[in-house]
Design a binder for these strands. Structure first.
Length: 419
RNA sequence: GUGGCUGUAGUCAAGAGGUCAAGACACAGGAUUGUGGCUCCUGCACUCGGGGGUUCGAAUCCCCUCAGCCACCCCA
């Protein structure tokens, strides 16, 4: 208990963490190219923000939040997703007063109380983007393109983009009515969960995985059937933009994303080969959210990706990660008198920008050599008593096994040249 | 929240009621007293996730608990 991390959380140690750093590097590169600035918001927020911003009927709010009371009796919640906080900050800091649209990205941990599974953890990490202030379908297309560009840069293949439109509140109301009418006669046959969805959020019945429910809804009106002219036009424009640069996608009329705030475009990117939790990214437009959270009516769109799932997919697909840079030099010593010289040389080498290391466990020369080998040191500098008296050291090239004497005060220059 | 599988050293893992709990890798040390990568030798679990029970005796059987994995729900 004391010696294991809480359920569903992970430690990332050296060897693993370099992969995360690489991901973060690619993220920062692509974001700067697409004009996104980074935003860092608190890990916890007022619980109310998520009730408003995520939606009371969502699974996240109903059963997955880490909610606690602080010593001032405020109800706080570890953020389960990033959009609500970003919207909150946008309003709080009056970012809408800046030139629009606002394009922001974030990377960081999110928390959901759920049973851990392949690609799902209680603390997981998301990279997400949000665009506030434009309802241009070109933005919808651009964020999808950017997501795919990102996966492409990582070397991921065989991904599917599913897109759909759930329309504006007007279309949704329309759709809700039509759908309820369609479902009403079949109520008794629906699964118990869908029966409860009927009143609260009938749209969700459409993506129920229960085979019986799927069968009963084959003929059910999908969201796109009920779009108003403007929403239909918007959806068509998004698809046209994607077509115009050759982006392949699947229109999935049953794609109804779980969060209440989505309007119009909804999309999801799926990786076939990482198990049941195959969605590696998803998002959509949320034109009502900013107003819902207390701001001026402002259109918005965004997506989020699960970094654990991306890493999982990269490993499954054998994607390449950059190699760790080789270690420059190991300083080995013989006898106590060499220790001071080694300490000073080490400081000098490092200050000059070389990666340098020595032994701190009093190992024999033989053991130091083995240790140097494990470090994959390019060179080993051996400082012995005899050499020290003559003001020289032995420099061994670990790859070839050749070695030569070099004056102690010339070692740095020698190594810099040979490296 | 529900279901299935699993839990032996840092890692992989044998072991299926009764000698000191195999082995491999890793790690540490060493092979004529100052030199790595190959080879060889030596060391490394009073203990089998934790707790309780059955038994003369349990890593091996039972119960509880925790954790991991997988699936459902849902989502990243």
């Amino acid at each position: 208990m004391l010696t294991s991390a809480p359920r569903g959380t992970n430690d990332f140690l050296p060897g693993e963490v370099e992969k995360w750093q690489y991901l973060e590097k690619v993220i920062r590169e692509i974001c700067s190219q697409y004009g996104y600035g980074e935003i860092r918001t608190p890990i916890f927020e007022h619980t109310e923000l998520f009730h408003r911003g995520v939606g009371d009927t969502t699974d996240i709010v109903e059963k997955e939040m880490y909610t606690f009371e602080d010593r001032g009796e405020r109800s706080l919640t570890l953020r389960p997703e990033g959009t609500a906080s970003t919207v909150r900050a946008f309003i709080q800091h009056k970012v809408y007063a800046q030139p629009q649209p606002t394009k922001l990205f974030y990377i960081g941990p999110m928390f959901r109380y759920d049973r851990p599974q392949a690609g799902r953890y209680r603390q997981f990490h998301q990279f997400g983007i949000e665009v506030f202030g434009s309802n241009d379908p070109a933005v919808d297309a651009e964020v999808i393109v950017m997501a795919l560009d990102f996966y492409d840069r990582l070397g991921l293949t065989d991904l599917e983009v599913h897109i759909n439109s759930v329309g504006c509140p007007k279309c949704r109301l329309d759709h809700r009515k039509t759908l309820q009418e369609h479902l009403r006669p079949k109520m008794a046959e629906l699964c118990s969960l869908c029966q409860s969805r009927f009143e609260r959020n009938p749209m969700r019945v459409l993506d129920c995985k229960n085979p019986k429910c799927q069968e009963l809804t084959v003929e059910a009106p999908t969201t796109t059937k009920c779009l108003c002219p403007e929403c239909l036009e918007h959806f068509e424009a998004v698809k046209k933009y994607l077509d115009s640069i050759g982006i392949k996608y699947v229109v999935n009329e049953r794609l109804v994303r779980g969060l209440d705030y989505y309007t119009n475009t909804a999309f999801e990117i799926v990786a076939r080969d990482i198990g049941a939790q195959s969605s590696i990214g998803g998002g959509g437009r949320y034109n009502g959210l900013i107003e819902q959270c207390g701001g001026q009516p402002t259109p918005g769109i965004g997506w989020a990706m699960g970094l654990e799932r991306i890493l999982l997919t990269m490993e499954k697909q054998g994607c390449k990660f950059p190699e760790a840079p080789p270690f420059d030099v190991f300083v080995a010593t013989i006898g106590d008198v060499a220790k001071d010289a080694a300490f000073q040389l080490l400081a000098k080498l490092r200050k000059a920008g070389l990666a340098a290391e020595k032994d701190y466990l009093g190992r024999s020369l033989k053991a130091q050599m083995k240790y140097a080998d494990k470090f994959k040191a390019g060179f080993t500098v051996i400082i012995g008593e005899d050499e020290l008296n003559r003001g020289v050291v032995m420099v061994r090239n670990m790859a070839g096994g050749s070695q030569e004497e070099v004056a102690l005060d010339k070692v740095l220059e020698y190594l810099k040249e040979k490296r």
